[in-house]
Design a protein around this nucleic acid. Structure first.
Lengths: 210, 210
DNA sequence: GGCTAAGTTGAGGAGATCGTCAACTTTGCT
DNA sequence: AGCAAAGTTGACGATCTCCTCAACTTAGCC
């Protein structure tokens, strides 16, 4: 399954493209004309398509590091003594990543990675860690017992949208919104919920369709 | 300031266009090709532009009734005995409107009406009523005292985005999300918030830029 | 019926973005 | 140095959507 190694110049261009994409996506979002990325990289559009046949390929490569970063954050969260603190830490840190990068913000709202047929190993590990964070916080008693892993999507969507709207004007208010959200997730605040959570499959389906 | 009255056929086409727009926007969102609206109305694209020079004009005309509907909902909310119940009623009903119409959902996320230089009379009245709903619920003691009118935008953005994501798969889960949000807005749940709210001007600025 | 102002029509220019491919250039092996 | 495979290039056809406008049609007044 090993792909043939790239020639030296090709590898160099690949790196340039990724660096350019990081910058351009961060500033203008994931839907920029790919021409802009090629230009920023000092490379022709043909080369871009040569290296990354689809936009999703480029996005995946550009944000590959983020998947790992989130993993590290999750590990750290699980290392904190208090389960609720761990939960809050994780959500805040991921939101911070989103706030710092328009492209990543959009990506997070779509499930954290461009859709592939089946999730990567890293992604599965990420889900597993998040699952642990949620479960631990629930068992600790402070996260409301009816909160599920799938409900995390609500938080992400909320924060994503607020960051999108306020980034230019008021780049830190998302923290206020998040604080309001977190206050609703604690056991003492909990009232019975009117609808069952999304199932894992439903959520997967949602992310699959962009 | 009175515009010349339209000729009979022109008036008929205007109505057809609005009806078509209601249907098309509801199904496919506010960004559809205007050609699709014209086609649905059985009218040429030229006529559409003739009647509605900009997309915003068409959107405004299409959702004019909604502004009034929201006003009625607000009045009703203020008529309820319990201030908190009124607040919840209002938020739920507006969310329901959003859930029923993709176009209106998008519009709500942008402030409820296409941007004009200065807000309409109706819009001002709407703000005033919402302001009363919030204030009354705060004074009633159950809505947390640090919650402001501008914080309502967080709720709208959250609900908008969740509806957007889940409408096709699970058209009622937004109610779960909203219930989680509402649990965070109640006085017993409140922890100090880390950031001041948006100011009225900031929010206006956000809506002005789409 | 005749006339004019109001209204309609749809082809088409303008502007984006996409993704391709045949001609050219570079790498790195021998 | 010579050569084949790998890589690059950017002009170009395809597709979309917008918005205009000159030629045509219709309403409604006299």
């Amino acid at each position: 399954m090993a792909t043939a190694p790239l020639r030296k110049d090709a590898e160099r261009n690949r790196e340039r493209l990724i660096q350019a994409a990081q910058q351009v996506f961060a500033e203008r979002g994931l839907d920029v004309a790919l021409e802009a990325v090629a230009k920023q990289a000092g490379v022709s559009i043909g080369t871009l398509y040569n290296r990354f046949p689809t936009r999703a390929d480029l996005v995946r490569a550009t944000f590959a590091d983020r998947v790992e970063t989130v993993g590290v954050l999750a590990e750290h969260a699980l290392g904190l003594d208090d389960p609720w603190d761990g939960f809050v830490y994780f959500v805040q840190q991921v939101s911070q990543l989103q706030a710092a990068d328009r492209g990543y913000n959009e990506l997070a709202g779509r499930g954290g990675a461009p859709t592939t047929e089946q999730p990567t190993e890293d992604q599965l590990r990420g889900y597993d860690l998040m699952s642990q964070i949620v479960e631990r916080a629930r068992d600790g008693g402070r996260l409301r017992p009816d909160f599920t892993l799938e409900d995390m999507a609500f938080i992400t969507w909320s924060v994503t949208r607020t960051i999108e709207a306020t980034a230019a004007t008021s780049p830190t208010v998302w923290q206020r919104h998040l604080a309001l959200i977190l206050d609703g997730l604690q056991t003492p605040a909990a009232h019975p919920l009117p609808e069952p959570p999304l199932t894992r499959d439903q959520l997967a389906g949602i992310y699959r369709n962009c």
